[in-house]
C-alpha cells in the first residue's frame, strides 16, 4: 500500500501546500478587501466609499501629502545613495565588501529602535520636534530606507563592464560625458529597483510619522485609523487604492526590472 503511494510521489506535488497557503492567505484576503471596498456596512454594493475619498478635500490632501513625502524621500535617498554606491562599486579596495556591509548593517536593527535613536538626536537638536514635521519625516524615512537604495544601486553599478567606460574614454569622452552617456543609463535598473523599494514604504509607513510627532496623515495612517474604528469597508477602500498604485508602479517598472537587483530578496 505504502509502496504504491511512494511510486506515485511526484516532485511537482511538493508545491501543493505552498500554493494552498498562497491562495488562502494571500489571494483570498485581497479578494475580500476588494469586496469590502465596494460594499457598505449593510452589505449593499456601492461605490460611495470611493466617491467620498475623491471628493473629500481631507482625504485628497492625505493622498497628496503621501505623494509629496514619498517623492521627496525617494529623491533624497537617491541623491545620498548614488555617490555612495558609485564610489564603493568603482573602488579598487580589496575589502570593499566590508565597507558596503557598514552602510547596510543598520537594516538588521529593528526600525522602531532606529527611529527612536534618530528621534532622540533630532529632539536634542530642535528642541520641539513638532516644529518641523515635514523635514523630520523625510529625515526619518531616509534614515530608515537608505540601505534599500544603496544595495540595488551598488549591485547594478558593480556589474557594469569596465571596458565600456574605457572604450568611451578612448573615444575621447570626458569624465562627465562618460558618466552621463554610459554609466548612468546602464545603472537604470538599479535606480528603478531602489526607487520602488523606497517609494512605496514611504507612502505607507506611518509609524515613522507617529514616532516623530508628525500628526499629518499619510495613506497608511488612514488604514490605521479605519482599523482602530473597526471600519473594515473604509480600510479596504484605502487598501484597494494603494493596491492600484502598487500595481501601476510595478507595471511601469517591470520592463526595466532586473532579477538580481530587485526586491528585499537581496538583504
Amino acid at each position: 500500500m505504502t509502496g504504491a503511494l511512494k511510486l506515485r510521489f511526484n516532485r511537482k506535488q511538493l508545491c501543493i501546500p505552498y500554493v494552498a497557503f498562497l491562495v488562502l492567505f494571500v489571494i483570498c484576503p485581497l479578494l475580500v478587501v476588494v469586496y469590502y471596498a465596494f460594499t457598505s456596512g449593510t452589505g449593499s454594493i456601492t461605490i460611495e466609499n470611493f466617491v467620498n475619498f475623491f471628493t473629500n478635500t481631507n482625504t485628497l490632501g492625505t493622498l497628496l501629502y503621501s505623494i509629496a513625502i514619498s517623492v521627496v524621500t525617494t529623491a533624497v535617498c537617491l541623491v545620498i545613495a548614488y555617490p555612495v554606491a558609485y564610489v564603493l562599486a568603482r573602488s579598487r579596495l580589496k575589502k570593499k565588501y566590508v565597507l558596503l556591509m557598514l552602510f547596510v548593517l543598520p537594516m538588521w536593527i529593528n526600525f522602531t529602535l532606529r527611529i527612536t535613536a534618530l528621534k532622540e538626536i533630532l529632539s536634542s537638536i530642535e528642541g520641539n520636534l513638532s516644529a518641523y514635521p515635514f523635514l523630520n519625516t523625510v529625515t526619518g524615512m531616509t534614515y530608515d530606507f537608505l540601505p534599500f537604495m544603496i544595495l540595488p544601486l551598488y549591485t547594478s553599478l558593480s556589474k557594469l563592464d569596465k571596458s565600456l567606460t574605457e572604450a568611451a574614454e578612448d573615444l575621447g569622452a570626458n569624465g562627465f560625458t562618460v558618466f552621463m552617456r554610459v554609466i548612468l543609463p546602464l545603472s537604470v535598473p538599479g535606480i528603478i529597483s531602489g526607487v520602488t523599494m523606497v517609494l512605496l514604504p514611504s507612502m505607507t509607513n506611518y509609524v515613522v510619522l507617529d514616532m516623530l510627532y508628525n500628526s499629518t496623515y499619510i495613506m497608511g495612517s488612514l488604514i490605521g485609523s479605519y482599523f482602530a474604528a473597526y471600519d473594515w469597508h473604509g480600510g479596504s477602500m484605502i487598501s484597494l487604492i494603494l493596491l492600484i498604485i502598487i500595481f501601476v508602479i510595478t507595471l511601469a517598472t517591470n520592463r526595466f526590472s532586473d532579477d538580481e537587483t530587485s526586491g528585499r530578496a537581496m538583504l
Partner: peptide
C-alpha cells in the same frame, strides 16, 4: 502563476498585507 502569486506579498505594502489578513481571518 506561482511566481506571480509569490510576488504579491513582496511588492505589496505591509500595511495592506496586514490589514487584508486581519479582515479575512478575524473579521470574515
Amino acid at each position: 502563476l506561482i511566481n506571480y502569486a509569490n510576488q504579491i506579498p513582496v511588492v505589496n505594502a505591509d500595511v495592506v498585507t496586514g490589514f487584508s489578513v486581519c479582515v479575512l481571518l478575524i473579521v470574515v
